[in-house]
């Protein structure tokens, strides 16, 4: 059974069909990259998976259970699916460690001191131990994204969603964030990324999906998709993206 499976997911904003019958399966421990032009619907798809947006039609199965049923309480699901955004991730009025501890404190009713050891360990693992007491505006963009990842991980999610988490970063900071993703993949995390980092997708992804106008045009292993794209739209997109 796939960890996450999407069947015919449809999402509309008014007349605008943003996800148009998307099918996608993600196995446990896989890293899947969504690529596609701006406006293709990548972010929206991720937000639908995390139940930040209700879907019109289709189903989203987590461990085979439909989490997209209308009327279902989204909060327990969101705890199992972590998400990191492109920007405005961290809560600016809290230090890095407070950012990370807020959700476990509220949802698992744990005290700060009870959480501190495991949180410290997470910070340590991602090379952020010295930054725990810093406020977001005292951190570089790369550090902020890494703290955001730590914050999502602190909820011990089973799946992680990343929405272009490097596109707001200066080029020299991109590397450190991608390193974190590699580390996560090695630890066996199931991940879905929307990304413009083609080189990274090619190197690290288990599967790459090309989206256009809310549809999956082509998907496959990165070598296959990047080296021998079948669909003319994919070819055109890659020609521009890899230039």
């Amino acid at each position: 059974m796939p960890k996450l499976a999407l069947h015919g997911v449809e999402k509309r904003f008014g007349e605008n069909v943003v996800c148009d019958g998307i099918d996608l399966t993600i196995e446990e421990g896989q890293m899947v990259c969504l690529i596609g032009a701006s406006g293709a619907g990548k972010s929206t798809l991720l937000r639908c998976i995390n139940l930040l947006e209700p879907i019109e039609d289709g189903e989203i199965l987590l461990d085979g259970k439909d989490i997209s049923l209308p009327g279902l309480d989204p909060q327990p699901v969101r705890r199992r699916i972590g998400m990191v955004f492109q920007s405005f991730n961290l809560f600016p009025h809290m230090t890095a460690v407070e950012n990370v501890m807020l959700a476990p404190r509220r949802l698992y009713r744990k005290s700060r001191s009870a959480l501190l050891p495991e949180v410290t360990e997470l910070f340590e693992r991602f090379g952020l131990k010295e930054r725990m007491g810093h406020y977001p505006d005292q951190l570089s963009g790369g550090q902020q994204q890494r703290v955001a990842i730590v914050r999502a991980l602190a909820m011990k999610p089973e799946v992680m969603l990343f929405d272009e988490i490097t596109s707001a970063l200066d080029p020299q900071l991109v590397g450190e964030v991608l390193d974190v993703l590699r580390l996560l993949k090695d630890s066996g995390m199931t991940m879905v990324l929307a990304t413009h980092e083609m080189a990274f997708a090619r190197e690290a992804a288990d599967k790459v999906c090309f989206l256009k106008d809310g549809k999956v045009i082509e998907e496959g292993a990165p070598e296959a998709l990047f080296d021998a794209p079948q669909h003319p739209d994919t070819q055109a997109f890659l020609a521009r993206a890899l230039k």
């Binding site: 937000r47 995390n50 930040l52 989204p74 909060q75 327990p76 969101r78 705890r79 699916i81 972590g82 998400m83 955004f85 920007s87 405005f88 991730n89 961290l90 809560f91 807020l102 959700a103 509220r106 949802l107 955001a148 914050r151 999502a152 909820m155």
Partner: peptide, 14 residues
């Protein structure tokens, strides 16, 4: 910014 709400919601906060 509304993404602050989204960030909070994505963590499972009520």
């Amino acid at each position: 910014h509304k993404s602050q709400r989204a960030a909070a919601a994505s963590l499972g906060l009520s």
